[in-house]
Every structure is written in structure tokens, then in C-alpha cells.
Design a protein around this nucleic acid. Structure first.
Lengths: 215, 215
DNA sequence: AAAAATTAATTAAACGTTTGTTTAATTCAA
DNA sequence: TTGAATTAAACAAACGTTTAATTAATTTTT
């Protein structure tokens, strides 16, 4: 099922992702994409079959990459439970920043997504995220550091929901400072650091709620 | 600026919202909408000017209604700070459930939203949500019940992000139970209750972090 | 109150674009 | 010389919007 992609295909996928993220899948025309990627329109059908299958190839590529990143974290056992949770938060924020366009596209399209290949890809990614959090939580509970009444599903919803909403809100926040995302990298760094630390503090408070703090 | 809407206009707006929520703004054709609302296609241009302005009318209508609801909560001073936060959480969840289609539409379109009339409407609503939370937090801090280091902006992001993400994830959750949202109202109620209580517990842990619990 | 005149509502059809995709011819590389 | 890559052109379908004609409702005039 894993077909290798040549340079031209990757180039089209790369530019297509940009256009999809900017205009949304429906409004992004194959002519937009072809122009941006500096290829003939027919090349999209030629290589991918259809616009829809191009989207599918992009999704398959990105979700695959993320899977690898996430798996590498699962198997790092060099941290204590709370550090592991912090690392998880940092990683999730970083992954989204590094794949900003794809994240924006996914955010938009998953709302309407019906059952199908993309649906399955996203669901698997979600399941993996959830399991990753579960491992960290269970470890903390076993060590007696975390409280017992933790709904892992809801904790995942809060982590991912908070990060997602932060980034889809960021342009509104920037506008009040007369800046744009990416234009003031100092403010960008400061803001995402606020996001990181807020989630960490909040999760610590929640996870250790009612646990005596004997240092 | 407040023009009154006749029954036919409201009927079109109502059905259009359904179609927009189902297919997304771009993919929802005026012919879809006209058919669903049982009117001629030309009526949409006739009453609203364009498809885009129809969307604008829908947004103006819903954000206006929400504004009124939210304002009524701001001025209710019958609860203590923690109860007020709980009420806030309940209200936000309820409002989204009651305006499910509009929320779905807004979720999807705000990602790509450029400056313009809709942008302003959404930004104002966000600002109002934030201020509502700020009032509750400040009250709790003044009463010595809440800790001092609370970033209200980030707290708002967590509340709204968690709720939003929960609902955009809900169909994935349902699928594992071989159900669909709205089909099993017991499970729906149970799930949203889990959402509510999770946020409440988490917020309580965070807001009262480090505050001695002298009952 | 009836008739006439005026405005509003509604319709089917047509308009010009744009859409995703295909075709058939041509260029390029092995 | 064979097969892949690339192209410009053509394709039918769908899009949002406009037009011009007709019906319904309202107002004005008799």
C-alpha cells in the first residue's frame, strides 16, 4: 500500500497543501495548484487520478510522518511521569507549528468528514494521541503521583482542543496587536510559550489534585 | 443597520444554515439551498443579494442572539465565584448544543476567515466570551478563593477549545460505539455530562491551586 | 366599494464563468 | 523505438447571478 513518490509528485503535494490550507479544499482549484507547483493541470490527474486522491495522498504522507514522531516519544523512558506529560505537551505544540498548513487543512476538513479513507487516517491518529496520553497518565498513577479519577479521553480532548483553538484564534489575537502570525517571531515565540506553560500548569494542578506534595 | 426579516427570509436562512453546516459554505450550492427551503433559486439573490450576503445575514442573526444570552448571564449575581464558573461552563456547552449547525459552520469557516464583516462579528463574540470569564475569575480572586496566576485569555482558550474539540470529535467517538450523534440520546446526554463535569473539575483544580481548603 | 395603477413576489430560462477531468498530440528519456 | 512525461485544447457539468415575464398583493384613484 506504500507507493513511492517521485520528486514531481512531492512538489505538487507540497504546493497543493499550501493552496488547500489557504483556500480550503473545495475552493482550491486544480489550476491554482498547477500554477503554484509550476506544472500543467493534467499532471494532477496523471499522477494522482483526481483532486480528491491528491488530498488523500497528502493526508497519507503527513499522518504517516506524525505517526513515526509520536511512536518515538512513546518509547522514550528516560523521564518521570510529570516530565513525560510536559514533553507530550511540548511535542504536540511543536508538531502543529511544524506542520502548520496541514494542521489548518485537517482542522477545516475533519468537521465535515464522512466515513472513508481520510476518516480512517484521522481516526487512527486520534487514537494514537489518546493512547500516548494514557501511557503517561497510567505511569503517573502507578507511581502515586497522579490522582485516580482521570478521564483520559477528556484529558486528550482538552490538550488537543486547547492547542487547536489557540492556533485557530491566533490571528484574532495578533490583529489586536496590529501584527500577523509569522511577522513578529518574538511575539510568536512568547505566545506559544504562554500556551505551553499554561497547559503544563493546568495539567499538573489537575493530575496531582488531592495528592500530598511531599518533596 | 438592523433590518427586519420576513418569514420567507427566515425560512431561507434556516434551511441555508442546515445545508452550509452539512456541506460547508463553498460546496453548498444556491440550488441546494433553494430546493431545501422550497423556493426558487432567484429568491436568494432577490432577498439577500448574494450567497455571501446570505451567510452574513445568518451570522448576524446568530451572533446577535448569542450576545443577548451571554449578557443575561453576566448580570446574574446570585452565585458565588465557583458556582459562577460552573454556570459559565454549563451555559457554553448548552449554547453550542442548541446552535449545533451554526457552531459547526462557524468552526469550519473561521479557520480561513479574512478581515471583513464576518471576521468582526466573530471577534466581538470571542471578546465577549473572554470578558465573561474574566469577570468570574476576578471575582473569585477578590474573594480569596482562586489563585492569582491565572491567564484569562488562556483559560478561555481551554474552555472553548475543549468544548469545540469535543463536539468535532464526537462523531469519531460515536463510531466506535456504532452509534451516531443524535441517534442515542442517552449516550449523548451521558457524554455531554462527562464533558461538563470534566471541565468543572479541571477548572476547580486549576483555579484553586495552592489555596488552602478551609471548609 | 370597485377599478385602476403600482409595487412586491415568484418563476423558468438564459448568461457567462469556472470547475475537474479527458483527449490527442508532442516532447523527452532510456 | 518504446514508454513515460508534458502540453494545449476541448469537454460536459455545475456554479452564482441576471433577465424578463408573470402572478400576487397593496395602494391609489375614481
Amino acid at each position: 500500500m506504500e507507493t513511492e513518490l517521485n520528486d514531481k509528485q512531492l512538489q505538487i503535494m507540497d504546493k497543493a497543501l499550501e493552496v488547500f490550507a489557504e483556500k480550503g479544499f473545495d475552493s482550491a482549484s486544480v489550476r491554482d495548484i498547477a500554477q503554484r507547483a509550476e506544472v500543467n493541470v493534467a499532471m494532477i490527474s496523471y499522477y494522482f487520478g483526481s483532486k480528491e486522491k491528491l488530498l488523500e495522498a497528502i493526508f497519507r504522507n503527513h499522518t504517516g510522518n506524525m505517526r513515526k514522531k509520536i511512536e518515538s516519544i512513546i518509547h522514550s523512558k528516560t523521564h518521570d511521569p510529570l516530565e513525560k506529560v510536559d514533553l507530550l505537551i511540548d511535542t504536540y505544540v511543536t508538531v502543529i507549528i511544524e506542520n502548520h498548513s496541514f494542521h489548518q487543512l485537517m482542522m477545516r476538513e475533519q468537521v465535515l468528514m464522512k466515513e472513508g479513507p481520510l476518516y480512517t487516517l484521522i481516526k487512527d491518529m486520534k487514537t494514537q494521541n489518546r493512547n500516548l496520553i494514557e501511557v503517561a497518565v497510567k505511569a503517573g498513577q502507578k507511581a502515586g503521583l497522579f490522582q485516580k479519577h482521570i478521564d483520559v479521553n477528556m484529558l486528550a480532548v482538552t490538550l488537543i482542543g486547547t492547542v487547536n483553538h489557540f492556533f485557530s484564534n491566533y490571528k484574532f489575537i495578533c490583529q489586536e496587536r496590529h501584527t500577523k502570525p509569522g511577522k513578529d517571531s518574538d511575539f510568536d515565540a512568547e505566545s506559544t510559550e504562554k500556551l505551553r506553560s499554561h497547559i503544563k500548569v493546568m495539567f499538573k494542578a489537575f493530575l496531582t489534585y488531592g495528592i500530598s506534595n511531599k518533596k
